[in-house]
């Protein structure tokens, strides 16, 4: 554990001593702030209009009208931002020759991968916590439901964890960070649009495509429904990414 902690510390330090973490966090917060503001504004104007009709006014739900689309928007922003966080993890070590230091130290490959992965999860966590601050203000001025709100953030975190799992895998393939980011981005987009193909497919094929799509699983979490299938899906995706990374590193050294 101590060894993993050293890797996390070094990675977090690296993130914050280059502009990349600041830029990713700043852009993410800017966009999340913008989405939140526009959704709340829209919600306000709709509320004012519907206030004249008591029946419709009863139907207004801030969770569905603000948070659910907010989480959906943030999931796309994460898809665009997280490849930029994961692209350097192994690519940079390879390019700088520092992988020789890591892999000739007494640390195991698993410890190194875990340390690096946890470091970018930590950055993801920081991003999400900061983006939740304005959203949390709605609890002071309104009465949204807490559980769907928390589940939405859990969903974003799990989604991000899966994205980073794929990102770390691609960064172990190449020493070029741009290539790593583009391949991660491509893979994430592919798994995103799988559900589109799923709509036009039939039978088993449709359910397989829908199961594989990132956003089918995310939808239910944003609606406040917690299903262990979704949890298992995201965790196995992340784990699969880490497993592939481990295999790539081992095979490269054994080739």
């Amino acid at each position: 554990m101590k060894a993993i902690r050293s890797i996390i510390k070094k990675e977090v330090l690296s993130y914050f001593s280059s502009p990349i973490a600041y830029i990713v966090i700043f852009t993410f917060l800017l966009l999340s702030g913008f989405f939140f503001y526009s959704l709340v504004s829209w919600f306000n104007s709709v509320s004012v209009q519907l206030a004249q009709n008591p029946y419709y006014y009863q139907q207004i739900n801030i969770n569905q009208m603000v948070f659910s689309p907010f989480f959906n928007n943030l999931s796309i922003v994460l898809l665009l931002m997280l490849p930029l966080l994961s692209m350097r993890l192994f690519s940079e070590e390879k390019k700088m020759g520092t992988e020789e230091l890591l892999f000739t130290s007494p640390l195991s490959v698993t410890q190194i991968i875990t340390g690096k992965y946890l470091a970018c999860l930590l950055i993801l966590l920081i991003m999400l916590v900061l983006s939740a601050i304005p959203a949390a203000l709605t609890f002071i001025y309104g009465n949204p439901e807490l559980v769907p709100f928390l589940l939405g953030y859990l969903g974003l975190f799990l989604l991000g964890a899966a994205f980073l799992g794929i990102g770390i895998f691609w960064s172990s393939i190449t020493e070029n960070q741009i290539v790593s980011a583009v391949l991660t981005f491509g893979t994430l987009l592919l798994f995103w649009v799988l559900s589109w193909v799923g709509y036009s497919a039939h039978g088993l094929w449709q359910s397989v495509l829908n199961y594989l799509s990132f956003f089918e699983h995310f939808d239910s979490l944003t609606k406040g429904i917690f299903d262990t299938t979704d949890l298992v899906y995201y965790l196995s995706f992340a784990f699969f990414g880490l497993f592939l990374t481990h295999s790539v590193i081992q095979s490269r050294r054994w080739r």
């Binding site: 070094k10 330090l13 690296s14 280059s18 700088m96 020759g97 520092t98 992988e99 020789e100 230091l101």
Partner: peptide, 14 residues
């Protein structure tokens, strides 16, 4: 073992 590879393995930001 202590090892100095041909490319010195350094992290410039540290």
């Amino acid at each position: 073992i202590g090892y100095l590879p041909e490319t010195v393995p350094l992290y410039p930001e540290m």
